[in-house]
Write a protein that binds this DNA or RNA. Sequence first.
DNA 1: GCATGGCATTAAACCGGTTTAATAAAGAGG
DNA 2: CCTCTTTATTAAACCGGTTTAATGCCATGC
Lengths: 343, 343
Amino acid sequence: MAKIDDVARLAKVSKGTVSNVFSQKRPTSDEVRERVLRVSRQLNYVPNHTARSLVTKKTMAIGLTIPHGSFFFSLFHTQFINGVILEASYYGYRVLLDIIPEQQVQTPFLTSYPIDGAVVMSPTTNDERIALMHAGQIPFVTVGKVMNEEIAHFTSVDNDNPQIMRSICEYLIDKGHTAIMFLNANALMTVSLDRKASFIQTLEKHGLPVEAHMLHHKPALNSSEYLDYGYAETIRVLGTERRKVTAIIADDDRTAFSTLKALKDLNLNVPGDVSLFVICGDLSMMVQSDPSLTSMDLQPSELGAQSVRLLMNQLGVLQGEFPEHVIVESKIIERNSVSTISS
Amino acid sequence: MAKIDDVARLAKVSKGTVSNVFSQKRPTSDEVRERVLRVSRQLNYVPNHTARSLVTKKTMAIGLTIPHGSFFFSLFHTQFINGVILEASYYGYRVLLDIIPEQQVQTPFLTSYPIDGAVVMSPTTNDERIALMHAGQIPFVTVGKVMNEEIAHFTSVDNDNPQIMRSICEYLIDKGHTAIMFLNANALMTVSLDRKASFIQTLEKHGLPVEAHMLHHKPALNSSEYLDYGYAETIRVLGTERRKVTAIIADDDRTAFSTLKALKDLNLNVPGDVSLFVICGDLSMMVQSDPSLTSMDLQPSELGAQSVRLLMNQLGVLQGEFPEHVIVESKIIERNSVSTISS
DNA sequence: GCATGGCATTAAACCGGTTTAATAAAGAGG
DNA sequence: CCTCTTTATTAAACCGGTTTAATGCCATGC
């Protein structure tokens, strides 16, 4: 690989000038620039990214931190990632997938992170990834609330979770549902706390006490129950325990699909006997399921894009005043999985 | 941020020694090591990744190149990525998502790639990403055949696509199906060429000529038909054109789901009227669909892991003799979407 | 004609580590 | 006790760029 000195020598200029031709940080005369570029092409020269990074102190990469061991991500994650990658590319940034494997035997901290900032998905309470970023002075944006004791200020994007749950509950209540079961996300995730609180509050506001069988949390990823959580809970509550449930709210598409399967196995018609509502799902999948699923569109790719913009602002790449917390719109998409109950 | 000189000064040793304590490339006395580590902790020192990279010429990152503009990836991709990330982490490598956006207005080549090697998914014929890697001397492993004119040798992992199609076709033929429709992947992808050829060959071997309505290719991602390809083709061929089709082979899970929806809308029972077979799908989804879908398990995460191992071997990280091409096992998982036709 | 300013260019310092070659200290062998 | 190794440590060179401060050149204004 040719280096800058080779080019400088052959083009009869100093390395500083070659540097300027490529970085365009200072002007160069047309004559010199062309000579340098010609020689570079001839030598197949390309500036070395690492050497540049060392002095500019920018790696031009951002980390995308996926939750601990989420080796199965849902379609929500997929779309979010797409949003991040696309938006980052607009600013010339690359995305380093920064997943901390379950068994964290890995490098406790052998070296600094080669990233300028990070987007942290699905923070948990007292998230250690966030603690690391905080300690390492790495700018970061979270998707969802940060609930670490030592961290007061942070930048985040989020949906309005309390409002989302309120809307969903009231949507269902309006349609006459009173026996509602909520298959929430994992209890450790900060979003699930908000949603749980809002679920309980909204139901109580309407005079509907929340009983134990109405609220469940997704088990940990490493548990054997993780994959068929929706199926198992539905069979247990509606089948074995014979509870009356007329509407189910599923936290994600995977849970929704497995719930759907359970309902079929229980010989319950959707939406005839039981209505099903999905919180975060992949649009294309929701449409193609049968029945197509009524859901809350959280705009995952928009969440991803916005989180990158906030991060770019923190990095000084994107000028202007940005709010500390961005709320991304979400709205109910009515399809065919929810019905009205005539009282 | 504390630098190595600060640590050296405070610990009263040379920077070379501090370097050795962290890199462990040369031995240090217990006494010195402890003193250095203590001071480092005190100063919150962490070796700078970029500086280290500059001299070692290793970025400890590999690129994961997703097909042009595949901003919707399927579950197959997701699992593949998981396999790559997990395996890479075993060798201390990080994964840089290297997606070349559709509109390639981006950096023609402002700087070298900050990666040591790359895994290239779904190569197309005369893939320019591969041409770039090749020109840039970056070791790479592809998933699927490389079909670039100027490249003779390459390392790859793959399923045995011809055999896969043969198995699937013969599996269906054994069950009495003769009117089989194949919803293939995009025509540009090298896998789709292999599968197409094998599909035609196998059917003809059994005296079943392949007519135009029996073979279709997924449209380009940027086209409006991309998302409901399965649905549209099924409605058109089985509905509008009223062709006789008793079995459909769908290339991926998304296509399968949308095909399933189309069959329901056509009032056709699966597998009673039409059988459905999926080539690459996410296990957890296939199970939860109704009926659960009979599919070919391509072991995407195994493909990902193997591709990383081959790459690590090329990078000299993993010793030993490795084959140039690795074939990952695939097998039919029988579920409930294929039935036997009594003649 | 001479001071003034603007601009492209350059030599040298710098970014923060690793690596090499030299050196000092400690052990082994005769 | 002296030489020969072995081992830990160090000073200096190096990785390949960017940035700073100095320089030379030309145009401008008075």
